[in-house]
């Protein structure tokens, strides 16, 4: 399959890209930064997913070079606004909403146009357990993920007739740079509320995505799957 993953320079996106390349898929990754994966099945594009022109160009090249894509994993996200609302600057909030929601929207919009033509596609958006826990200091990040989840459900209804499913996966906490600014004590308190009270790994995320993109999951759509026993 041809799998497009956003945010593959580091963190979860990089691990997903490496896994799917090694499993024999063609992975087309992107991030603002340079390529950090060496694999014959990997192709990297450096651009910002909030820039509409770059997103259009990316999909135009993808159509010419690969004839389209089978899977889009909207993984890239930032958390620039980790503070109580009273202390969040406009730009911190806007850039977080822009990357997490607008970027995912733009990528999905252009991806489904190509998927429609092939009458097949899988869109996987990355959610977060933050939406369930509504933690203080995470209002903007949580709102951006709640917006992604709302879009997931509605988009699923719009594209099912074209053979496209659209789901979200919401991982538990996984050790990446995104977690750097999270207070470990507060995180432990949150994790203790889960059925699985420890940090998650990319492994269970990969297993879930593998199932969602399989032919067997062709009637699983408009869902948000929480990992970690949330």
């Amino acid at each position: 399959m041809v799998i497009v993953i956003t945010g593959t320079r580091k963190g979860i996106g990089k691990e997903l890209a490496e896994y799917f390349c090694n499993a024999g898929h063609i992975v087309i990754g992107c991030s603002r930064g340079e390529k950090s994966i060496e694999n014959v099945n990997y192709e990297h594009h450096s651009f910002d997913i909030t820039d509409e022109k770059s997103v259009k160009l990316f999909f135009s090249q993808l159509r010419k070079n690969r004839g389209g894509l089978d899977v889009l994993i909207n993984n890239a996200a930032v958390n620039n606004a980790l503070a109580p609302v009273a202390l969040v600057s406009y730009n911190a909030a806007a850039s977080t909403m822009n990357t997490n929601f607008m970027g995912s929207f733009l990528m999905a919009r252009e991806a489904i146009k190509l998927m429609m033509k092939n009458s097949f596609g899988r869109v996987i958006n990355m959610g977060s357990m933050a939406v369930k826990y509504e933690e203080k200091g995470e209002a903007i990040y949580t709102a951006s993920k709640a917006a992604v989840l709302a879009m997931t459900k509605i988009l699923a209804k719009e594209v099912y007739q074209y053979g496209i499913t659209c789901n979200a996966v919401s991982p538990s906490a996984i050790k990446t740079d995104l977690m750097d600014n999270i207070d470990p004590d507060a995180l432990n308190v949150v994790l203790k509320r889960n059925a699985i009270p420890e940090m998650g790994t990319t492994k269970e995320l990969i297993d879930t995505i593998n199932w969602l993109i399989s032919p067997q999951a062709n009637k699983i759509t408009a869902q948000n799957i929480y990992l970690g026993g949330v």
Binding site: K56, L57, S60, K113, M116, K117, Q161, Y162
Partner: peptide, 24 residues
Amino acid sequence: SIDLVTFIVALEQMIEDDWSFSVT
């Protein structure tokens, strides 16, 4: 509504393929 979406998407792709303009 499905036909309309199909039509608009097909138009964009035709404009790009046949006339080499990328439009939304």
